[in-house]
């Protein structure tokens, strides 16, 4: 490309740009009104934005001037009056009774002791028999690898046999009109059975079409047994350790259920709704935690501080 051409091209390009700019400025004379409208709107938006910012600023500053103010009391967050604190103590006491097993079921302490005993026995057995367990694990992993290979090989072999059988059936269908008609009829029957969700009939028709029952799935497992032997037996200590672990898990679940039962009893006996009770309980916990560390409890009304202060010892006993 010559320099002259390049200059001309640039000159043309500049002219083109100039024309485009002129055109864009000429056309938007109407458009400019729209854009001007957009600017006015943006200015209005900025005013609104500033107003919002000022309102937020006021709100934020108000919060800073009274940081420990109580929350807005409503249907969920109730003011903790003397009566309500008594209701909460009643609920907490009833819940504690459930945890202590006074309703006839094992106490939480008993369940925890049993759980810990089972877990400790399991850990003890595992530790004392670690050599046998490690040896078993190595042998099991070896056997598992061998079995996986054998199962894979068996599946491959079966798949190849199936593919071969399919090819034969396809060839037969091409060359044998009677078989072809039979196959089409069977396929139609199969479609009907499938639509009805009749899996037993579909299975039966498949067997009929294939000219015999397919090999069962445990053929592969049997092939693995033949090649690798059965999986080694777990050492008795390991079996026992796993049983104890299962027991510990079961007991942990029982503890959780008992805690759930205690929580439900607390709500019931407090005569508050569940949400009211949970909110009140959480606020009581916050109060007790603050006073325990000699901090000023924030977020409570003067009346609430008085009521909670008066019942502090009772609350600490049952919480």
């Amino acid at each position: 490309m010559s320099y002259a051409y390049s200059t001309r091209a640039r000159a043309f390009s500049r002219r083109g740009i100039a024309a485009a700019v002129v055109a864009s400025l000429a056309v938007p004379f109407h458009g400019a009104h729209a854009q001007l409208g957009g600017l006015v709107k943006k200015a209005k938006d900025r005013v609104v934005e500033q107003q919002v910012a000022n309102q937020v600023e006021k709100r934020v500053n108000r919060a800073a001037s009274n940081p420990g103010a109580p929350p807005k009391f409503d249907d969920v967050t109730l003011e903790l009056t003397n009566d309500r604190v008594s209701q909460i103590i009643r609920g907490l006491s009833a819940g504690r009774a459930v945890l202590d097993g006074t309703n006839g079921s094992p106490s939480r302490a008993t369940l925890i002791a049993q759980r810990d005993q089972a877990a400790n026995q399991s850990a003890d057995l595992a530790q004392k028999n670690s050599k046998a367990i490690d040896a078993y694990t190595v042998k099991r992993d070896e056997s598992q690898r061998c079995r996986n290979d054998a199962i894979h090989a068996s599946r491959e072999k079966r798949q190849q046999a199936n593919d071969q059988r399919m090819k034969e059936l396809q060839a037969k269908a091409m060359s044998d009109p009677a078989f072809r008609e039979k196959a089409i009829a069977m396929a139609q029957k199969m479609a009907v059975a499938q639509q009805k969700g009749d899996t037993a009939e579909v299975h039966r028709l498949m067997i009929e079409l294939n000219g015999g029952a397919p090999e069962s799935d445990n053929v592969d497992s049997l092939a693995a047994d033949k090649a690798c032997g059965s999986l080694p037996a777990q050492p008795a200590a390991m079996v026992q350790s796993e049983k104890l672990n299962a027991l510990a898990n079961k007991l942990t679940e029982s503890i959780r259920q008992l805690e759930q039962q205690a929580a439900e009893t607390e709500v019931k006996e407090s005569k508050l709704t569940e949400r009211q009770y949970q909110m009140a309980r959480e606020r009581v916990e916050a109060y007790l935690s603050a006073v325990k560390y000699n901090a000023e409890p924030g977020g409570f009304s003067a009346g609430e501080r008085q009521a909670l202060g008066a019942h502090r010892a009772d609350l600490e006993k049952v919480m």
């Binding site: 864009s24 400025l25 400019a32 001007l36 957009g38 600017l39």
Partner: peptide
């Protein structure tokens, strides 16, 4: 179109272009 109006339109278009580009 008077020259003043033309220049005004150019300015408005330029500001609008910048404003559009700056709109988040």
């Amino acid at each position: 179109m008077p020259v003043r109006a033309w220049r005004g339109a150019v300015r408005v278009a330029a500001i609008a272009f910048v404003a559009i580009a700056a709109t988040p």
